[in-house]
């Protein structure tokens, strides 16, 4: 990219007030919108105070142009300005107190309103963070209606979603800026996060608490869908994986089941029942692979399978030596898991 393009882009970002699929001020949900309002209030109040300081400072500097070398003023009380300055200080402190009071009050009430939001009709989702991926489980009416997926969170628009947050190893933090604030996932504790999406679209969340080697590549695809599409998606997720159909897929299936893959990953409807890695039953329906490390595509998937340690060094998916044709077969099989 050329320098000019960069500068333009920077200006655009500045002016647009941060829009995008991972932007705090581009609210797509109630929580983010409320916090966005608080931000606006803060920005105005703080901006005003900052302006006052700068004006005062500028005036002091401007005045100093006329100051000539003179004896130091050793007694403050000797100055004519002492008294008015004291009055001004009183006013200034008063202003600060009023400003802070307004902000504290706003904070308090917004915090209350966020904490007391209704959750009875909320969609209940259990999110478990592990180094460096997200396990997402939708609680169903019956235990067998439980949808398990990884690194993606799909929400119906308009319905609050109550996320129950667990951590498997270290502290992580779940943050989908467009939908709301973050909440830590702490081993030994169960936190919760309420999100009420209001705008359909594709968003991106990311781990926000440093969690080790691949903290940078621990993203979560968040999709806000219309309720019908969500229900369809949910039903589709409940189906077992389709059986491999082409000879290549069949070979890929065999490689998967007989190799190390099946020891860590689950594909519903097959003998592979590992739980330590992400559930792959509908892998090909996801937007990204390896917790947002790459967009989902046949080629990216193959690159990932060939050498996960180059794509995401230090993650727990080992390098498995496969011939090119085996690799293609395995990719073809996984790519069939829509």
């Amino acid at each position: 990219m050329s320098g000019r393009k960069h500068i333009c882009a920077a200006l655009v970002v500045l002016l647009a007030g941060c829009s995008g699929q991972q932007a705090a001020l581009d609210a797509a949900g109630d929580q983010a919108a409320t916090i966005g309002d608080l931000w606006t209030l803060m920005l105005w109040v703080c901006g005003f105070m900052y302006l006052l300081v700068l004006i005062f400072l500028a005036h002091a500097i401007w005045r100093a142009r006329h100051a000539l070398d003179a004896e130091p003023l050793t007694h403050g009380s000797g100055s004519r300005a002492e008294h008015p300055l004291r009055m001004a200080l009183g006013g200034w402190v008063g202003l600060i107190v009023v400003g802070l009071f307004v902000l504290s009050l706003a904070t308090f009430f917004i915090d209350r309103s966020l904490a007391q939001a209704r959750t009875d009709d909320a969609l209940k989702i259990k999110v478990t963070a592990a180094q460096w991926w997200w396990k997402v489980e939708y609680e169903g009416m019956a235990p067998d209606q439980r949808v398990v997926t990884a690194n993606e969170l799909r929400l119906p628009v308009g319905q609050p979603a109550l996320l129950e947050l667990h951590a498997e190893d270290v502290i992580h933090s779940l943050w989908i800026p467009n939908l709301g604030g973050k909440e830590d996932l702490i081993p030994g504790r169960i936190n919760s996060l309420l999100l009420t999406p209001r705008r359909e679209g594709e968003y991106r969340g990311q781990c926000a608490e440093f969690c080790g080697l691949q903290h940078a590549k621990m993203a979560l695809d968040a999709t806000v869908m219309n309720p019908d599409a969500f229900t369809r998606w949910r039903q589709q997720q409940l189906t077992p994986a389709p059986a491999p159909s082409t000879p290549e897929q069949i070979r890929g299936h065999e490689i998967f089941m007989s190799g190390p893959c099946a020891a860590c990953h689950q594909i519903a409807g097959t003998p592979a029942s590992g739980q330590t890695g992400p559930n792959l039953t509908h892998l090909a329906s996801r937007r990204t692979i390896a917790a947002g490390a790459r967009p989902y595509s046949f080629e990216d998937l193959r690159d990932w399978l060939r050498d996960p340690q180059s794509v995401k060094p230090g993650n727990h998916m080992p390098v498995v030596q496969l011939s090119d044709s085996d690799l293609n077969a395995l990719t073809a099989y996984l790519d069939s898991l829509k």
Binding site: G259, P260, A263
Partner: peptide
């Protein structure tokens, strides 16, 4: 054999 990669 074949279940756990050798480095592991």
């Amino acid at each position: 054999a074949g279940r756990i990669p050798e480095q592991q």
